[in-house]
Amino acid sequence: MKSKFTPPIGKITQINGQCISLIGNDIDTDRIIPARFLKCVNFDLLGESVFEDDRETLKGSHPFDLEENKNATILIVNSNFGCGSSREHAPQALMRWGIKAIIGESFADIFYSNCIAIGIPCFTLSKKSIQEVQNNKDNKFLFLEIDLKNSLAKSKDLTLNLEIKESSRKMFLSGEWDATSTLLENEDFIENKLNCLPYLEFNSPIT
């Protein structure tokens, strides 16, 4: 088993690590973490069950089971990764397995915002660049240094211009990706909003 999990905290500016490639489009969150593992009241044990059914089907040859990938932290995926269910259990399971950043052709919206909310930056690259990285013969030993400030990823002989939503990038650099406290700073505005919504006037409170 891997070393003890520690969640990210504060500013995220740099992520260095080994890449793990997972090839396929439209990989949904039911595949990332099948629904039976959602029967839990915390996320602690999800890391062990990430891609459980896909891994079972491939009997040891799934990228998440290969010895050479066991210390990988940067996941390389194709398009529409994380589609389907809104379950945050999916990025939580990836994070608890060891993933700290994801680079892909594209991400499903809810999965993307779940990743940002728990401190996993998701970057996009063109299909061609992703395939280059995934087909890199040395891929199993491809180490990347991701620099959030300049949206760059570098290895010995590779430089990638990563794309990330500007709002997400800024939140990681400032440490405000854990949004609750930022949102709470506007408490007065929230109260004001509550008082000016027309439908709250004609609906009685739900009690």
Binding site: S86, R87, E88, H89, P91, Q92, I110, S113, N114, A117, I118, K165, S167, A179, T180, T182, L183, L184, N186, E187, I190, L194
Partner: peptide, 21 residues
């Protein structure tokens, strides 16, 4: 109306708001 993850459920409970593009 839209789906959110658990961290955003936390934010809505705590602030009745979420951060969204």
């Amino acid at each position: 109306a839209f789906g959110i993850g658990t961290s955003q459920v936390r934010d809505v409970l705590a602030t009745q708001t979420i951060a969204m593009n």
